[in-house]
């Protein structure tokens, strides 16, 4: 019978907290860049300029058809070399965090753009006509009338995607970057208590994600009654 031994956890908490900060940093930055870039992609996809809409469609389909972990590996392996040779970055500088954030942001933007595209299309055509009829230009119509309504409807979906992204940050272990999961793995491996550490890490992920999705549900209810 396996004997659980949780004693290595309290001492490891500061290190785990550092890892959690890395996970949260990747999540927040990738969500924000993902939404901004995703919005631009959605607008391109819906535009009447064929070149733009083909580019956006190609981008979205490419990123949705490859595994996330592969995109992350590309970024770890290729991007630092590119930056070194193109921009003269010093050889061997640690760009793992930057690469991870860039990989997540570009990958998630593809998913966000599909959510945002549906959100934009959920705003009635009449709203666009009314704004145009008042003399607003396309940019103003989108910024002042269509996007605020679209985002209001989309907030629950965007947050849910953010929760998924938070879970997916654990994939950065492929680069040995010490995010929360990576930190837990390292400590468990060092102390020979991998099972306990991974159970603990799983419990932490569960509590955070479950609490966050309850908040989203609460907000969704409020939105429906408003």
């Amino acid at each position: 019978m396996y004997e659980f031994d949780w004693t290595s956890i309290p001492g490891a908490l500061p290190f785990l907290w550092q890892g959690m900060q890395v996970s949260l940093e990747i999540t927040f930055v990738a969500v924000i860049f993902g939404i901004v870039w995703g919005t631009l992609l959605a607008i391109m996809r819906l535009s009447s300029f064929t070149v733009l809409s083909w580019f956006a469609a190609g981008y979205v389909n490419l990123f949705r058809a490859v595994p996330l972990v592969m995109v992350l590996l590309w970024f770890f392996l290729i991007v630092p070399h590119l930056l070194e040779s193109l921009l003269g970055f010093p050889r061997g500088s640690d760009m793992r965090l930057g690469s991870a954030i860039a990989g997540f942001a570009l990958f998630e933007a593809a998913y966000y753009s599909e959510i945002i595209r549906a959100g934009i299309q959920s705003v009635s055509k009449g709203q666009m006509a009314a704004a145009s009829a008042l003399g607003m230009r396309y940019g103003q119509v989108m910024r002042l009338v269509v996007l605020p309504q679209a985002f209001r409807n989309m907030v629950p979906l965007l947050l849910t995607q953010g929760i998924i992204l938070f879970q997916d940050t654990s994939l950065v272990y492929v680069s040995a970057l010490a995010d929360f999961f990576g930190a837990a793995y390292k400590v468990g491996d060092r102390d020979g208590r991998l099972v306990e550490m991974l159970l603990f890490a799983g419990a932490v992920y569960f509590v955070i994600c479950f609490a966050a999705s309850q908040l989203v549900r609460h907000y969704q209810k409020k939105l429906r009654t408003a």
Binding site: G126, A129, A130, A133, V145
Partner: peptide, 11 residues
């Protein structure tokens, strides 16, 4: 211009 469905901005 005035529309059939008013089209005030709901937000």
């Amino acid at each position: 211009m005035v529309f059939q469905n008013f089209e005030l901005f709901p937000h």
